[in-house]
Design a protein around this nucleic acid. Sequence first.
DNA 1: AGTTACGGTGAGAGCGCTCCCATCATTCCA
DNA 2: TGGAATGATGGGAGCGCTCTCACCGTAACT
Lengths: 359, 359
Amino acid sequence: MGAIPQGGSGEGSEVAGTLEEIARLSGVSRSTVSRVINNNARVSPTTRERVLEIIRREGYRPNLTARQLASGRANVLGVVIPLGSPDVLSDPYFSKLLHGIAVEADSHDQHVMLSLAEPSFRHRIDEVAGQGIIDGVIVSAAQEGDPFLVRLIEAGIAFISVGRVDDERVSYVDIDNVGSARQATGHLLRLGRRRVATIAGPLYATASIDRLRGYREALDQYGLQFDNDLVVAGDFTEAGGRAGMRRLLEHRPDGVFVASDRMAAGALNELRASGLQIPDDVALVGFDDIPLSREMEPPLTTVRQQIETLGAAAVNLLLDLIHDPTASASRVILPSELVVRASCGAHLNQERKAIDATT
Amino acid sequence: MGAIPQGGSGEGSEVAGTLEEIARLSGVSRSTVSRVINNNARVSPTTRERVLEIIRREGYRPNLTARQLASGRANVLGVVIPLGSPDVLSDPYFSKLLHGIAVEADSHDQHVMLSLAEPSFRHRIDEVAGQGIIDGVIVSAAQEGDPFLVRLIEAGIAFISVGRVDDERVSYVDIDNVGSARQATGHLLRLGRRRVATIAGPLYATASIDRLRGYREALDQYGLQFDNDLVVAGDFTEAGGRAGMRRLLEHRPDGVFVASDRMAAGALNELRASGLQIPDDVALVGFDDIPLSREMEPPLTTVRQQIETLGAAAVNLLLDLIHDPTASASRVILPSELVVRASCGAHLNQERKAIDATT
DNA sequence: AGTTACGGTGAGAGCGCTCCCATCATTCCA
DNA sequence: TGGAATGATGGGAGCGCTCTCACCGTAACT
């Protein structure tokens, strides 16, 4: 029937249809339908209602791909989770973070594309990020000087980090890891512990570094010497925490600041297996306040960070960045707090005080 | 300077460039470059080499969105994880499943888009699935008669389920949950336990239903009466397992088949808190074989399923389906095996046998 | 030498949207 | 009541790719 590009429209009983089709059915132009869909242009109420009716009737959904291509916006946010160890993802931290991200993204009509960033997969992300499929990236647990971040920066891709990154060009959300760790360690010291050790996170992560620094600062405040034997690095898993505690036990700590609750759970198991009493023999303070923490035996004293809020903040920051790429980098530091439960032995001291008082 | 559609190309120092640009630079047509990129057409080796060289030099990456729109294929697979409870995702099961999916997808040059399927979010997925962004969906832990599945089916969206779905139109990968549960429960019975209880999963999940059925079948085989008091349903979390065990303890079981290792961990804590010996007082068998299981005290006897393989199989099945949408639904049942460790008390019986033998 | 075959290549038409600009009624101001 | 502003709509180009088809040159056949 000639080269007339009319074509289409007759391709059988497709589920959705196209803009053009809706336009035809409602007797207006494609442009008008487009305006209705993106409901911010000026269309007369009558027309709008009529078009909406047809759209509803036909069950029409705009083709996101076409929209992306034409507008340059995808309404998809990428999230990159490191997958160094095969089951980092099972850390409730990420679970919560993702949840926070998903909820906030949803409220902004954004889709979330999650990438498990095995180092070997990262090529996928920047491929995708550079080329229209996603508008921006939230990177979690980035490492110092991570070449991946460098690529994102150089490619001019909008991204924000969950966790401090030392580069003036990058925006991030974080908590005050140094201060929180100082507080947590200080708490043990205040309770009279003097051989306070720490099970740090992997030392390539900025969060680990900061928490370790807070630990040192607390020792300093109490005029205590930093002792290398009282520091081990874990990998944020239970197994890592357990192994760390095993090594630590050779040096007889009476308190341990553990850089994540998941590791604290492992540490706790090791202590129990060694027949040690918590908090009597060894007091424990964790970090994160995951659901499990309150159910441990004894319940874990820990630093609570609002992980879901962190995720939500990341989404908002990223969206801002996408809307105004020229804006300078911004940082958001969310509050955290020490949640005192039983594992630190605070109640022991209270009892002791009570006894003192009665004496 | 008129309305000549040449345009483009001069838009500043973009990172990537376009097909057209590469074509110009290498002195061939857009078509040829396209062939080179999709490296399966017939292009002379000389030309191909030259074009590849330019592509490399310019750091060109094809725009995936445009490619999607033109080809109708996105090379993105969606994965839907239920998010009923806020931290299901932290179950190592999903962690492993995702890992298996990610690795396999990567090897097929597919991206993975993960959706946390809060019931309220599902609109996002079918929006996306219906409209070009993704080619197909892997649904995990679907529920019987889930309206979401119905929508996917009716919309003609390619999808496969990880876990049995009773609908002849849907393809799935699964393990033999009934058989495995029968074997696990039978194992406890064979070891002489007679009050064998079970902590089932949430009963809307087919896996839970099947495992419960296997439990019943095992009782039948041993001529034991099914006792409703010995059955509780958990939610696949530690807390759920723990709560389940607490209720179960009122009815004095001497063995428990727990439908997931994560719940088994919770159950184990409860038993310990009650001062009961494992396996002496109560023997335990779990399901999944997550990393934690071998580190429990005592190590957990459990059903090992190759979760990552399950994920990989799902990817392959889905890709098949995408390539040939007319193919009839297929099912893949992967093997599973009982891993005997200490929590079931098998070694006790062996010792007993050994003693018998010496007597 | 005439035909067929085919490997290698280019041109054009879309994919389904958005966005800019043109058009045409209205309505407002002096 | 004439000219400008304003509101509502339509038309066209184009986002960057893929895909079909046409084309040309050379090798292989009769």
